[in-house]
Design a binder for these strands. Sequence first.
DNA 1: CTAACGTTTGTCCAATCGGTCAAAAATTTG
DNA 2: CAAATTTTTGACCGATTGGACAAACGTTAG
Lengths: 211, 211
Amino acid sequence: MSTGTEAPRRTRIQQEKRELILEAALEVFSTNGFRGSTIDQIAEAAGMSKPNLLYYFRRKEDIHETLMQRLLDTWLAPLRELDDIGDPLTELRSYIRRKLEMARDFPRESRLFANEILQGAPRIMPLLAGELKTLVDEKAAVIRGWMRAGKIARTDPWHLIFSIWATTQHYADFDVQVRAVLGPNRGGDGRFEDAARFLEQLFLDGLKPKG
Amino acid sequence: MSTGTEAPRRTRIQQEKRELILEAALEVFSTNGFRGSTIDQIAEAAGMSKPNLLYYFRRKEDIHETLMQRLLDTWLAPLRELDDIGDPLTELRSYIRRKLEMARDFPRESRLFANEILQGAPRIMPLLAGELKTLVDEKAAVIRGWMRAGKIARTDPWHLIFSIWATTQHYADFDVQVRAVLGPNRGGDGRFEDAARFLEQLFLDGLKPKG
DNA sequence: CTAACGTTTGTCCAATCGGTCAAAAATTTG
DNA sequence: CAAATTTTTGACCGATTGGACAAACGTTAG
């Protein structure tokens, strides 16, 4: 039985080298974008010659495609974990925390994704309108349920999710700007904890002074 | 007396053609990034030949640089307007509204800026650590004053500004994703009004249900 | 050993890149 | 008008791009 998308059988060397290439390509693509990156750059970062790289991935696009496919799953994992069991506010708070941790620990993945979206998502548009929309709609329904039950304030669930994505990914995608503005003191390793504290307060209480 | 940065005297044709080129370059750069854009693309979008374009801008970098210089001023205008006169919550609310309007009306400018930051801001790093940091520090002091006066909740002013940037610019930079997820109905022209309503509630009251 | 197979590399190619240049065309100036 | 100046273009250049290919190299099985 063939699914049509099963992975070809590979030797141990092929698996290792492909991983090496994907790691190098993540570094290069995430900082230069797809068109701004060259196969030579990736090959050099992976420590091999260009023809050798092309032996493992026949086209530049194949590398990018493989990278994006893997990315989307891990990237959406935190949202998938958001479910109905447990206290809604706690659930949302830990979703925000997880997304912020991903921005801290996987900034290259975030930037790769941002680059793709910025340029109109030419290579993953179907995934956005398909898999992603389905997942978000599903979770929006969960959130809407919490609102109806009076567990959280009534508002737009979709834009709530957008705002969580925006605020957390900002610390990966705009990292240089964040560090430049915060300066050497406040822009050090502690900036993610500061961000976590701020975001928790923002999403829970907003800015109105406590009366 | 020469400042060293004064604009050269230009004919009427030069002014018009330069504007035409900058408009075309904004379109191209904002969707492909600097390295991903070609002079030919810009020339074609501007309706002229490549050598003709290079008669007005001698290098590709000159176009980008001119674009970025103009951009930063208009882009930071809303933040500059944030000042101490008037009610703090109203002041912040109108800042958020203005930023969201800019994301709606000038998405290309937002994406151009995002592209530059994403790739490590190689061409505007000094501006970030200089002019931008100075401005943000200044406004952070204003916000801190409001907190001390008990007008708004105590929190981190810098991260507050980041969160406003992130949530508003998200609707320009990630527009394709936003529309894909919202779908044809909710993703129409009304999405900015929905976003405005949501953001106002988020920043003022947060998500806790009203007791 | 040798044959088969998997891996690596040097060389090459057509297309595209940013940019030059001289000459033609259009415009302004006297 | 004619001369001077500005604008536009076609042809061209060296460098870089993504990718092809055959030969060389390494490894493993018989």
